[in-house]
Design a protein around this nucleic acid. Structure first.
Length: 733
DNA sequence: TGTATTTATGTTTTT
DNA sequence: CATAAATACA
């Protein structure tokens, strides 16, 4: 058996690469920045480069590649394995890297061994406790708002004590108090929030030189993808790990920076050359993904950003179909149109795995889902996180976390009476009060309820029974995740309590729990001797896209944010409306960032390989009421030559949707937006919109001499006026 | 104590 | 509208 020589292996890694791509792959020493436009073969460069490094200057186990999602990490792992390079490379997200290192080095980091990751819901509970602890009324401080403020502070690496020092006015001092209390409660419960994972590792690296050197010896070469979306802590981690050897390779695209709101600093990538002397910079601007027209449309939009490094994407791909701009009268019609198009594609034998639908807000998926469901179109929604937010799933996970970390009071209070075992609010409050008064922890008194003086005998018995349950379950942490879960749901009584439920219209909770168990089974299939602790951490750090299945034959729905890094032959982006795609909460919203919104739109558009449809409607249901919408300013930034407007609302094309008007008296069935009317009090007016609201018909009329009025039809006292009667000029406003 | 009903309240985007 | 907290009731 003759083995291929190392040289052969190397040349295999360099075949079918362009010059700049090869340049990036072969750069083995010192800092490297790859500015890779959307669809320019960045993933290919990263995987080849990682393999190349491992074959030339270092070993697989010394390469660290950091990706943005677990899904991306898994894919990179696959591709590198396919290149025949050992599987010992570390490929993961920042958060999972931090988690692993902090767990191994918990002592150095000053963390308890049994710490667990607290998700946003847990975080909110801790904030509520902290508000109580800081003795504030939650009136002016919604937990959600404080959560945001604290998270922002952590993202900027501002600790609670520094926040308190920097606080200038009363309101900042108030937040500081909550922040400090929050940190205390979190520490007591041995919990780390998402931001802590990054922060604690960054501080550990900064303060512990020996650790830093140790890590640097392990990871001689570090690759960081999506560098434009790194925050301060991630930036610091990246720099500290590569402090001595300088082998940092950052890849990314400033035009795709879309996480500024969570502390990502686009400046990190823009400053790379200043940060690193003699940094090599490689630009990838040839796009292999999209048609010429799609690329032209996307470029035309992104060019409207003022603060931007110039970059011109180009492609040798075919010209392709025009980008469609779909106009419909309301969100239902928008969804139905898309659903029927997908149904037709399927009838034509097309694979719906090729199709993706993107939107700015999760809430927009609803109408689309309804239409797809109704039309029998198979689809999946990228929202792994939502699955884990279901009540029954959270209950099971609370058991797991409590069994891993008894200090987790959030989980303890959640499950102490789930399923109901007669331990009510009063009992719980008394245990907590006594724990506070004695300076001990809640779980201690769960195990010895008789020492809580305020507790009655009946309550003591019930609590003791619960403590015994926990004692019995204690051993599940030694079991494999799926076995552990099965034991938990059986022995806790959750299974029995859920048996009767589930006949309702909602999805069966027991079915969801079974899905959770099979997820655990899948997890342990891939790795030998996976523990419950591993699985719990993995589960805590899942992202929405991680749940997306490829090639499932279903269309995929996801937010524009989740779409980053993916590609689909056919893409729909819905809701390109003013205030929605450049998203703006309210008119003077201080957090409004038009350029980032435009980048988001750009990211969405550049996911498309072959076909792209941008859709907006005239009325959209928002929080249960239909709202008038005008098209997104981004639509006007599209190049006219590359787009085709498909307007379902143009000249009576939407008559079917006005069918409900027909059974009204008078000739109102003929009325619609634009119809001229007269009212005795207000004079001449023009109908803006007209729609049914319950049994009534509402319409909005703009009057020539005054304001816009919303009227209810039977009382509106309107009379139709013909345009000829009035003449030109009457509506010059 | 637990459950059902009502009322208030609120929201991008995510690891 | 959709969830969570507050209140009323069994």
């Amino acid at each position: 058996m003759v083995h291929a020589s190392n040289t052969d292996h190397l040349s295999a890694l360099l075949t079918d690469l362009t010059d700049p791509q090869r340049e990036a792959v072969c750069h083995t020493d010192g800092p490297l920045l790859v500015l890779a436009g959307a669809g320019c073969g960045k993933t290919r460069v990263i995987t080849r480069r990682a393999a190349y490094l491992a074959r030339t200057v270092t070993k697989p186990r010394n390469v660290l590649a950091i990706t943005f999602t677990n899904k991306a990490a898994a894919e990179m792992y696959e591709r590198i394995s396919a290149l025949g390079v050992g599987s010992e490379m570390t490929i993961c997200t920042f958060h999972s890297l931090c988690y692993r290192l902090l767990r191994i080095h918990h002592e150095r980091a000053g963390l308890p061994e049994d710490f667990t990751v607290f998700d946003s819901a847990d975080q909110r509970k801790v904030i509520q406790l902290a508000i109580a602890r800081a003795q504030l009324s939650a009136d002016n401080w919604s937990p959600a708002r404080l959560q945001g403020v604290i998270s922002n502070a952590k993202n900027a690496m501002v600790t609670a004590s520094r926040f308190a020092n920097d606080a200038n006015d009363w309101s900042e001092r108030t937040v500081a108090k909550v922040y400090e209390a929050y940190e205390m409660v979190l520490a007591e419960q041995h919990g780390l929030d998402f931001d802590d994972l990054l922060l604690k590792l960054a501080f550990l690296l900064r303060d512990d030189e020996e650790f830093r050197r140790q890590l640097e010896r392990r990871y001689t070469h570090v690759l960081i993808d999506e560098y434009q979306d790194t925050n301060s802590a991630q930036y610091l981690i990246a720099h500290l790990i590569t402090e001595q050897n300088k082998n940092i390779c950052a890849t990314g695209d400033p035009d795709q920076s879309i996480y500024g709101w969570r502390g990502a600093d686009i400046g990190n990538i823009l400053r790379f050359e200043e940060d690193h002397e003699h940094a090599q910079v490689v630009r990838l601007e040839r796009n292999y993904r999209s048609t010429k027209r799609i690329l032209a449309a996307a470029s035309s939009v992104i060019e409207h950003n003022v603060q931007r490094k110039d970059k011109t994407l180009w492609t040798e791909n075919e010209e392709g179909a025009r980008v469609r701009v779909l106009v419909t009268s309301d969100s239902d019609e928008e969804s139905e149109t898309i659903a029927s198009e997908l149904a037709e594609r399927r009838n034509n034998g097309e694979d719906l795995s090729d199709v993706a639908i993107f939107y700015r807000l999760n809430s927009l998926s609803r109408t689309v889902e309804e239409a797809l469901l109704h039309g029998g179109v198979p689809y999946q929604v990228a929202r792994g996180v939502e699955f884990y937010n279901r009540k029954e799933i959270k209950d099971v996970l609370a058991y797991v976390r409590l069994l891993i970390n008894v200090h987790d009071e959030v989980s303890l209070t959640r499950i102490i009476n789930t399923p109901t075992r007669g331990i009510g609010k009063t009992t719980i409050d008394r245990i907590i009060a006594h724990a506070r008064a004695t300076g001990r922890e809640m779980f201690e008194f769960v195990f010895e309820p008789e020492s809580v003086p305020t507790l009655k005998n009946a309550a003591i018995g019930k609590v003791r029974a619960f403590a015994e349950l926990l004692g019995t379950l204690r051993t599940v942490t030694q079991e494999s995740p799926s076995i552990a879960l099965e034991r938990i749901i059986r022995e806790s009584g959750l299974q029995a309590s859920l048996k009767g439920e589930g006949s309702g219209f909602d999805s069966d909770p027991m079915e969801n729990i079974n899905e959770l168990i099979s997820a655990a089974a899948t997890f342990e299939r891939d790795r030998t001797d996976a523990t419950l602790v591993d699985w719990m951490a993995h589960t805590s750090l899942l992202s929405d896209v991680d749940a997306v299945e490829d090639g499932s034959g279903r269309a995929t729905l996801m937010t524009l944010h989740a779409a980053k890094g993916l590609e689909f032959p056919v893409v729909y982006i819905i809701g390109l409306e003013d205030g929605l795609l450049p998203f703006q909460r309210e008119p003077g919203d201080p957090t409004y960032n038009e350029e980032e919104e435009r980048r988001l739109c750009f990211v969405g558009m550049t996911r498309a390989k072959r076909e792209l449809t941008l859709s907006h409607t005239k009325y959209r249901m928002v929080r249960g009421v239909s709202e008038r919408k005008s098209k997104s300013p981004f639509i006007d930034e599209l190049p006219g030559a590359d787009i085709e407007v498909v307007d379902h609302t143009a000249n009576g094309a939407d008559s079917s949707r006005r069918g409900w008007l027909d059974d009204l008296p008078h000739d109102i069935a003929q009325w619609g937006p634009g119809t001229l009317v007269r009212n005795d009090d207000w004079g001449l007016g023009r109908i803006e919109w007209i729609r049914r609201n319950g049994a009534q018909v509402h319409l909005e009329v703009t009057f020539a001499k005054g304001p816009t009025k919303t009227l209810i039809l039977p009382f509106a006292n309107l009379e139709r006026v013909d345009f000829d009667e009035v003449g030109e000029g009457a509506f010059d406003y």
